[in-house]
Design a protein around this nucleic acid. Structure first.
Lengths: 150, 150
DNA sequence: AATGAAATGATAGCATT
DNA sequence: AATGCTATCATTTCATT
C-alpha cells in the first residue's frame, strides 16, 4: 500500500461512485493501472464494499438513541447468542462490544420516541442474558461517516 | 416516495456502485425511469452521497475507543466552538450530542493504544469547555454500517 | 410516468514498453 | 508496473406511448 493506493482510498471515501476514469485523473494515473490498483484493493479486503449514505430523517427515521447493555454471568455461548440476536434487529444500525461494563453499546434508529419505546419494551428488553439496559437519546449527529484518517 | 424508491434505496445501501442497468433490473424497472428516480432521490437529499467502506484495521487503524464528554457551564458559543473543534480531529469518525450528561459521545479510531493515549493527552484533553472525559475501549465491532430499516 | 433507441462516455482485457 | 488501444457495456438524453 503506497501513496497512490491511499489517494485512491481517500477519493473513494469522499465519492464512492467515482468512475475509474475520474479516479485515475484525480490520483494522477492513467485508467488501466488505476483500475488494476482498485481491483487489488477490493480483492484484498481493504475496500469492504460501497454504500449509499442515506439521510435517516428524510426516510422517516428521525429518532436516534444509544442503549448500553450490561450482561449477566452466562454460559460460554452467552456472548455469541446475544450478538446474533442483536444482529437480527433492523433498528440496531451499530453495535460494539466494550471492555468492562457496560458490555455493549447499541446505536438505534427509529421513527420517533413512541416507536423506540415499543422497540425497547418488546425487543430490547427481551434480549437474552441481559442484566441491565440504560438508554440515552441522541440530540444531534455532529459528525457522521467521516472518512478514515490516512 | 413509493415502494420502488424504497427498493432503490435498499439496493444502493447494499451495493453503492451498482450500475443503473443492474439497479433497474433488481427493482423491476427499465433503465430510464430508474435513472430518473435515482436522480430525484439524489437531488432531494434522501441519498446524501456514496462512500467506499474501508476495513479500518487493514489500513493500520486497529484501535477504537469511545470518549464521553461532560461540558462545563459555558457561554452561548460553547457548543458551537466545541463542535467545530471536534469536527477538525481526523481520528473522531463519529460524534453525537446527547440529552443529559454526558453531553457528547465521540467515536475515535487510532493505530493502537499508544497513539490513542497521545491523542487523548494532547488533543482531546485540550478541547474547550470540557469538564470531564471518560473513555472506554471498543473490544469488537459487532454491527457496523447496517442498512437503515425501511 | 414508463419505455425504447441512440449518441456519448466508461470499463476491462490485452498487447506493448 | 504503467501505458495505450479496442471491443464491450453503461449512462444519459430525447422522442414515443
Amino acid at each position: 500500500m503506497d501513496g497512490l493506493d491511499k489517494k485512491i482510498l481517500a477519493e473513494l471515501q469522499i465519492d464512492g461512485r467515482l468512475s475509474v476514469t475520474d479516479l485515475a485523473e484525480r490520483v494522477g494515473l492513467s485508467v488501466s493501472p488505476c483500475h488494476r490498483r482498485l481491483k487489488t484493493l477490493e480483492d484484498s479486503g481493504a475496500i469492504a464494499g460501497y454504500k449509499a449514505q442515506l439521510n435517516a430523517s428524510r426516510i422517516g427515521l428521525g429518532f436516534s438513541a444509544l442503549v448500553f447493555v450490561t450482561m449477566k454471568e452466562g454460559d460460554n455461548m452467552a456472548v455469541a447468542k446475544f450478538e446474533n440476536e442483536v444482529r437480527c434487529i433492523p433498528q440496531v444500525i451499530q453495535a460494539q462490544r466494550l471492555f468492562g461494563e457496560p458490555d455493549y453499546l447499541l446505536h438505534i434508529v427509529e421513527k420517533d420516541l413512541h416507536a423506540f419505546q415499543a422497540l425497547y419494551d418488546s425487543v430490547l428488553s427481551a434480549l437474552p442474558y441481559v442484566k441491565r439496559l440504560t438508554s440515552t437519546i441522541v440530540m444531534k449527529e455532529v459528525v457522521t461517516d467521516k472518512p478514515l484518517p490516512m
